[in-house]
C-alpha cells in the first residue's frame, strides 16, 4: 500500500510538471498581452507600459515562468494579473461552488442512473427499457451547453422558477444555493446519467446470469436481497471505472456549465483567465484540475479495491 501511494505521488508530480510545461508552451505561442487585453483600446499607452513593467510582464516569458515555478515550490501560486489578487485566494474562493456543483452532479448521476439501470435490467426488452434506451441516447447526444440553454429557457423564461446568475453561497442560504445549483448540476449530469445508466443496466443483466446469483436464490434469499446484496455489488465494479471517468467529465463539464449559468466558479475563472492571458491563474488552475483528476483516479482505485476484493493495490 505504501509503495502504491509513493508510486501514485510520483506520478502526480510528473503529471503536474508535464502539464505546467505544456501550459507554458501554449502561452508562449498565444498572441495577446494581458494588460492590453484588460485595459482595452481606450487605454493610456503610458499606463499600459508602467503596469506591464510593474507586473514584470516586460520580461521574457521563460523568466516569468521561472518566477512562477519558484513560487510554486515555496507553495505560492503567484498573483493574478487580471484581478490583482493572489491566485490562491481566487481559486479557494471558487472552490466551494465548483466542488459542490461537481459533487451534486455526481450524486444526481449515481442516484438516477443506478435505479434506472436496475429497473431497466429487470425489465429487459420491455417497453420501458426501450424508451429509456432512446432517452439516454438523446441525453448523450445533446451537448451540455445546449442542454443548459434549454433548461434556462424552460425553467427561467417559461416557468420562471429559476433565475440564472443569482448564485448564493451555501453559508448564506442553503436552499437558495441548492436551487441555484440544481439546474447546472442537472445539465452536467444528464449526459453522464445516460453513460452510467448503460453500464449499470448491462452490468445487472450480465451479473444476473451468474452462478452465484442462483446460489443466493438457492439459499432462500429474496429477489430484493439477491439484487441488492449480490448482483448490484458486482455490477457496480465496472460502473465504478466509468464513474471515475464521469467525475473527470463532470469536472470538465463545470467549466462549460458555469459559463452558461454565469456561476462564479473555477470554470468561469479559467475561461476568463485564458481570454485575458492571465498566465499565473491559468497555470494555477490547470495544475489544480490535473491534481483533482489524479486524486479522483486515486480514489477510484481505492474504492475499486473496497468493492472488489480480487483487486489489491500493489
Amino acid at each position: 500500500m505504501l509503495a502504491y501511494i509513493i508510486r501514485r505521488l510520483g506520478l502526480l508530480i510528473l503529471t503536474l510538471v508535464f502539464i505546467s510545461i505544456i501550459t507554458f508552451l501554449v502561452f508562449q505561442i498565444l498572441p495577446g498581452d494581458p494588460v492590453q487585453t484588460m485595459l482595452g483600446p481606450d487605454a493610456d499607452p503610458i499606463r499600459i507600459k508602467t503596469l506591464r513593467h510593474q507586473l514584470g510582464l516586460d520580461q521574457p516569458l521563460y523568466i516569468q515562468y521561472g518566477h512562477l515555478i519558484e513560487g510554486f515550490i515555496r507553495g505560492d501560486l503567484g498573483q493574478s494579473i487580471r484581478f490583482s489578487m493572489p491566485v490562491r485566494d481566487l481559486i479557494f474562493d471558487r472552490l466551494p461552488l465548483t466542488l459542490s456543483l461537481a459533487f451534486m452532479s455526481l450524486i444526481i448521476v449515481i442516484f438516477v442512473s443506478i435505479p434506472l439501470g436496475v429497473i431497466a435490467a429487470r425489465r429487459e426488452n420491455s417497453w420501458g427499457d426501450l424508451l429509456l434506451s432512446i432517452f439516454t441516447q438523446f441525453g448523450m447526444a445533446i451537448p451540455s451547453f445546449f442542454m443548459g440553454m434549454i433548461l434556462i429557457l424552460l425553467f427561467g423564461s417559461v416557468f420562471s422558477l429559476f433565475s440564472p446568475g443569482s448564485y448564493v453561497p451555501w453559508s448564506e442560504d442553503f436552499w437558495g444555493a441548492l436551487g441555484s445549483l440544481l439546474l447546472p448540476a442537472l445539465t452536467i449530469a444528464i449526459p453522464q446519467i445516460a453513460v452510467s445508466y448503460r453500464y449499470v443496466r448491462n452490468g445487472v443483466i450480465e451479473q444476473g446470469q451468474m452462478d452465484y446469483v442462483r446460489t443466493a436464490r438457492g439459499k432462500g434469499a429474496s429477489e430484493w436481497k439477491t439484487l441488492s446484496h449480490h448482483i448490484l455489488r458486482n455490477s457496480l465494479i465496472p460502473v465504478l471505472t466509468i464513474l471515475g471517468l464521469i467525475l473527470a467529465e463532470v469536472v470538465a463539464g463545470t467549466i462549460v456549465v458555469e459559463q452558461v449559468f454565469s456561476l462564479p466558479g473555477i470554470g468561469q475563472l479559467l475561461i476568463t483567465s485564458v481570454s485575458y492571458r492571465d498566465f499565473p491563474v491559468v497555470q494555477g488552475l490547470v495544475l489544480y484540475i490535473a491534481f483533482v483528476i489524479v486524486v479522483i483516479n486515486f480514489l477510484v482505485d481505492i474504492l475499486y479495491s473496497v468493492l472488489d476484493p480480487r483487486i489489491r493495490l500493489k
Binding site: 479557494f92 472552490l95 466551494p96 461552488l97 466542488l99 453561497p169 451555501w170 453559508s171
Partner: peptide
Amino acid sequence: ILLISGCSSN
C-alpha cells in the same frame, strides 16, 4: 464540502 463552503464566506 458543506464544511468547506461554510468556512469560505461570511
